[in-house]
Nucleic acid binder design. Structure first.
Lengths: 66, 66
DNA sequence: ACTAAATGTAAAGTATTTTTGATATAAATG
DNA sequence: CATTTATATCAAAAATACTTTACATTTAGT
C-alpha cells in the first residue's frame, strides 16, 4: 500500500495536524500512515478521500506485496 | 460504515468463500465484514473494489457515527 | 543565527481487525 | 427427505491500528 497523502496535503495546503483534526485522529496517526508505517482502516481512507475530494483509489494504491 | 458486499457478490454471483479466496482472506473475515461487525483495512477495501470493478466509495459508505 | 511551526520517532498502552477451528443454521439440489 | 453447499456465529489468539505523551529533527521565515 502506498499513498500520496503528502501530495494531497500540499494541494490543499494543510498540515498533518490540520488533517488529523479534520478526520478526528491523532497527528501521529497521520504521520505514520503518510510515511507508510501502517495501513489505515477504510473509515479513515474514506474520510481522507472526502477531505481531499478525490476517490480513495487516487490516494491509496495497492502494491505487489498486498 | 455500511457496505453492500452482499449485493456486489450477487451481481458477480460468487460465494463468500470465493471472494475470500480472491482477496486472500478467510471466509469468516468476509462474513464478518459483510455483516458489518467490523471495518476492514484499506487494503481489503481496495481489493474488493478491484474484484467488483467498482470504486471503494460505491461499496463502502460512511455513516453518521464514523 | 534565532525562532516558531511542522514533521519524525519512540515507547507503552488500548482498541480493533483478522485468523483459525469448530459448530450451527439455512438454503439449494437431487 | 437427505445431502450438499452456503452462511452465520463463537471463542480465543495473533496481528495490526490507533492514542497519548514526550522529545528530536527539520524547515521556513525574519
Amino acid at each position: 500500500m502506498k499513498n500520496n497523502i503528502r501530495v494531497q496535503r500540499a494541494i490543499k495546503n494543510i498540515t498533518q495536524a490540520e488533517l488529523a483534526d479534520l478526520i478526528q485522529v491523532s497527528r501521529q496517526t497521520i504521520n505514520t500512515i503518510e510515511s507508510g508505517k501502517y495501513v489505515p482502516s477504510t473509515v479513515l481512507a474514506l474520510k481522507m478521500a472526502r477531505v481531499f475530494d478525490k476517490p480513495v483509489e487516487e490516494i491509496f494504491e495497492l502494491e505487489d506485496g498486498d
